[in-house]
Each structure stands twice: as structure tokens, then as C-alpha cells.
Amino acid sequence: MWKGLKPGSHLPFGAAYPYKLDMVETEEFGNMLFLDGMVMTSQKDEFVYHEMVAHPVLNTHPNPENVLVVGGGDGGVIREIMKHEKVKKATLVDIDGKVIEYSKKYLPEIAGELDNPRVEVKVDDGFMHIVKSKNLYDVIMVDSTEPVGPAAPLFERGFYQGIYEALKEDGMFVAQTDNPWFKADLIRKVNKDIKEIFPVAKAYYANIPTYPSGMWIFQIGSKKYDPEAVDVNSIPERETKYYTPRLHHASFILPKFVEDLVK
């Protein structure tokens, strides 16, 4: 139940794509960030998404020193990355500075690590940043909105090919790829594209109540390392609320209808 709006305004987003940013205070989920009426994050359940973007891939790559986050202006993925002492630098590239600004103000527990000295924040086009980066990153995380407007190119094969080239020879990437109930064709297409580019391609899922259907799919592309081959005993316990070493492997066990999408 809405208790009222905090600032909401039409802001520029990409080339000729106006959108509406709302920060809404709710009784059940706390402050919620919306873009064009779509839930991006909420104080109550944000930890699920952000932990599941960051930890599976960072616990698979043995030395993720240089990490890139495309999107993710709320800072949640960066917060989780900072829990990994092997990460020497994390670069966040988000096209929208207002998301960063509003998150710092209204979602401080999510955005609190954006000022960490190991973090560089750039307000820029993530797609073009990938194009200009070659053999640079150990891990790339794509924390994008849904595939509409300026985020649409982040779900195309050319973008994944660019990620491959931006990664080092043993690099990995992860991207959120929406939900299997309403976006089955998207998941099938993205999985096919990733498999054609990367030697290792794996999908996993998590439960996020404020996202459509509650079931959310993530996909990994890796040049060398298999997330399902990780020794659970090698994963250190960290301060998390959803992800655990045991859940690492369990999240790759997909329901049959999702498994069929990514075969």
C-alpha cells in the first residue's frame, strides 16, 4: 500500500527516450525505486537480486581483481562486490546519474559503497564502454533494466560478443535475463547467443518477490571456469541474507520448464 511519493520526475535517459523515475515509500517493502512504472529495487528484498548477481560469479573466478558493473546505479551489486577482498577495483558504468543520486539519498543501505575508494563510478553508456574496452576485465556484471528503450541493446548478441572481447583470457560475465513465465523467448535467445560465444554457459535462478512472477533468471558466460565445478568448501562465509555456499550449487538446479528453455 502506497504511503506517498518521494520525488518523481521525467528525466533524460539515452537518446530521445524520456522516462519517469519514482522513489515510492511503501508500508511493506520500504522505499522502492521505479523506472517507467517498473520496480527496480526495494529496501525489503533487494538483497536477493544483488547477492545473486555478484557472489556466484565472484566465487567461481579464482582472482577477480578488476570488475565492471554495467548499470546498477542503485549500488547494490557494488556493495556485494566490496565483500570480496580479491577485488582491487570495481567500475560502475550507468547511463543515468539520477538513479545514482536518488539511491544515495533514499536507499543509503544499498548505495553505501559507491564512495568506496576501490570503486570508480562513471555516468556513461555501458554499451559503448564495453565496445571501447578490450581484454581489460576479469568479471563483468550486467545489472540492466528490462529489455526496453536504451537497455534493449544489452540483450543482443553483439553486446555479448563485445563482453567476450572486453574480458581477459579467463574472464567471466553474468547478466540478469528476466523471468521464464513471461519472457521465455528472451531467455531462450540469450542462452543461445551466450552458448555460441562462450565455452561455458550456465543459467541459475532466485526468488525475488517484487519482480514479475517472483522467479528471476541469471546467465553466466565464462571463457574457462565452470560455476558448477566450484568446491563448496572453498567458498568463504560472508555477510549475506540469501546466498550461501550450499545455495551456490542449488541455484543451478532449474525447474524442468526452465531447463528446457536453456538446453
Rank of each mutant, 00 (worst) to 15 (best):
E146T: 14
P209Q: 05
K88W: 04
R238L: 15
G76R: 10
M52R: 05
N66T: 10
L92W: 02
K189W: 11
P209F: 13
A54M: 07
K195Q: 15
I163C: 12
H129D: 08
L254F: 05
K224C: 08
E25T: 04
K168F: 09
P12T: 07
H55C: 04
D22A: 12
K122N: 12
V70E: 03
E120Y: 01
P212M: 08
K86V: 09
G162K: 09
I217E: 08
K3R: 15
P147K: 09
F252P: 03
V131N: 06
D138R: 09
K89Q: 14
T210N: 08
G37P: 07
N207W: 15
M82T: 12
N63K: 12
E25S: 14
K3T: 14
M52A: 12
P150S: 09
Y17G: 04
M172D: 01
M215V: 12
K195M: 12
V69C: 03
T240A: 14
K44Y: 13
S42G: 06
Y49S: 11
P12D: 07
N179G: 14
D36T: 05
E196D: 15
V70K: 03
R118I: 03
N135E: 15
V200C: 00
V190F: 04
D96C: 15
P227V: 08
K98E: 15
D138S: 08
T145W: 13
G8N: 10
Y102S: 00
W216M: 06
N179Y: 04
K105G: 02
K202I: 06
I197E: 06
P236E: 14
K89F: 01
N191D: 14
D94A: 06
D74P: 08
D115Q: 10
P7Y: 03
H50E: 02
P212V: 09
I78H: 02
L261C: 05
L21P: 01
I163P: 00
N59G: 02
Y243M: 07
T210V: 15
P227Q: 09
L261G: 02
S103H: 07
L21D: 06
V190Y: 08
G214E: 01
M82H: 08
T177F: 01
I95M: 15
G76Q: 04
V70L: 12
I235P: 02
T41R: 05
R246S: 14
P147E: 12
Y242W: 12
Y106M: 07
K98L: 14
D125E: 01
K88D: 05
S251T: 13
N116F: 00
D185C: 00
E80Y: 11
L33K: 01
L186V: 05
S133Q: 07
V200Q: 04
V230L: 10
I217V: 15
Y211L: 14
N233H: 11
K168S: 10
T26S: 12
E146Q: 07
L107C: 08
V24L: 15
I100L: 01
